[in-house]
Design a protein around this nucleic acid. Structure first.
Lengths: 198, 198
DNA sequence: GAGTATACTGTACAGATGTTCAGCTGTCAA
DNA sequence: TTGACAGCTGAACATCTGTACAGTATACTC
C-alpha cells in the first residue's frame, strides 16, 4: 500500500478537515459522499478506512461522526535548538531546549526555532530573546535574512546575506557591528519570528 | 438569565470540552447524560440550550453531535480582527479576517490578533505587517505596550503607555511621531508578536 | 482467458440520535 | 396558599448513521 493519498482520498480528507476546523463537527459518511460525489455510504467508509490506514485520519468504529485528525495536525511543533548569536553568539549544541508551536500554514517539516541573542539585528526588528523560525537551506538570495555559520568555530548568526562587489558577506542591521567577510556557510533561512512579552 | 453557568451546566460543558479536545468528537446527549448523571436526553438538551444561550457553546440543530466550542475557546486559534494602526491607523471593524494559530501556552481565551500598520513602533521591533497578539484589558501599567483607542474616532493604535507628570499618554517608538495626549482608552495588552518573512 | 486487486454501487438494517410532548418536583416570592 | 419558574423524567418518534453484504466495472497481471 502506498503511503500517498489518491486525489479522491485527498478530497475526502480535505472535506473532513474543513468540517472539523470550520464547523467544529466532523461530517457523516453521507455528507462526505454528497460533497465528494460518492454515491454509496459504503464507498465513503471504504475510503475512510484507506485514509486511516495511511495515517491521515483517526476513526472510531461505530460512532457517528467518529472522525478526527491525528496528533500533529494542530499547530506545528517545532524544536527550539538553542540560542543563535545575533551579535557574536553561537548556535548551541543541537540539544532541543523545548518546543514552540506555530501556525501549521507557515511551517514545513524540518523547520526549527532559534532564540536570538544580541542586538545586531535590531534594525530590522529582531530583538534579543526573540524566537526565529528557520527553514534549513544551503543557499539564499542577495538580501535575505539567513542563519550563517563560519567554518572555523561553527558559530551561528542571524544576518542579512549581501553581495558586495564579487564577494558575499553577512551584514548586521546595527551600525555597531561590522560585516562578516571571512568564509561562512548558509544553513537556513529566516522565515518567521515569534516574540513573547511577559 | 444570568451569564454564569450553574455547577451542573459547568460539568456538562467540561465534559463536552473534554470530548472535543481529547477524543476529537463531540458527545451525544445520551453520552453527556450518562456521564453527568442526567437520565433523560431531553434534560441534557435543555441544559445544552441554556449553555448555548449563555454563549459557551455552539449547537447545530438536528445534527448528531452538533456541538462545538465557540470562537476563542481553542486558545491556540486566534481570530485576526483587522489591522491596527501603529502610526495613525485604525482597528478595523471586528470582522474576523482569518485565524492564526499560536502556541497554546502563551494564549488565553479572549486573545486576538491584530495586524500592524505603520512604522511608529519600529524602535521596539514592531514592524508594519507584523501580527500582534493582544489580550483584552482595560488597564495597564506604566511602560507597557498597549492597544489604545481614542474616544472620538475609535482609532486603535499600538503604543507604549507612559505616565508623564500627572497625566498618561500613548507614546510611539519612533521619533517622527508625537505622543497621543488626548483622551484615550486602553483596550488590550500586547503579549506577543508573530512575523512571517515571505 | 482466468485471476486478482481496486474502486466503486445499491440495498438493507439495527441501533444511535435529536426532538417533542405531557407531566412531575422542589424552591421561592407574593 | 398560590403562582411562577427552573430542573428534570419518561416515552415515543422520525430521522440519521455506520456497517454489512452482494454485486459491478475496470485495469492489470499471469
Amino acid at each position: 500500500m502506498s503511503t500517498e493519498l489518491t486525489p479522491l482520498q485527498q478530497r475526502v480528507l480535505d472535506f473532513i478537515t474543513e468540517c472539523i476546523q470550520d464547523r467544529g463537527v466532523p461530517p457523516t459518511v453521507r455528507e462526505i459522499g454528497k460533497r465528494c460525489k460518492i454515491n454509496a455510504p459504503s464507498s465513503v467508509a471504504y475510503h475512510i478506512k484507506q485514509i486511516e490506514a495511511k495515517g491521515f485520519l483517526k476513526h472510531e468504529d461505530a460512532i457517528s461522526r467518529g472522525l478526527s485528525l491525528p496528533e500533529g495536525s494542530d499547530p506545528a511543533r517545532l524544536p527550539i535548538l538553542g540560542r543563535v548569536g545575533a551579535g557574536n553568539g553561537i548556535i548551541a549544541q543541537e540539544d532541543i531546549e523545548g518546543h514552540l508551536r506555530v501556525d501549521p500554514e507557515s511551517a514545513k517539516r524540518g523547520d526549527f526555532v532559534l532564540r536570538v541573542r544580541g542586538d545586531s539585528m535590531t534594525g530590522v526588528g529582531i530583538l534579543e530573546g526573540d524566537f526565529i523560525q528557520v527553514r534549513p537551506a544551503e543557499t539564499a538570495r542577495d538580501g535575505q535574512l539567513v542563519i550563517g555559520v563560519t567554518e572555523e568555530d561553527a558559530e551561528g548568526v542571524v544576518k542579512r546575506l549581501k553581495k558586495r562587489g564579487s564577494s558575499w558577506q553577512l551584514e548586521s542591521e546595527n551600525p555597531n557591528y561590522s560585516p562578516i567577510t571571512k568564509e561562512f556557510r548558509v544553513v537556513g533561512l529566516v522565515i518567521g519570528l515569534i516574540r513573547n512579552y511577559s
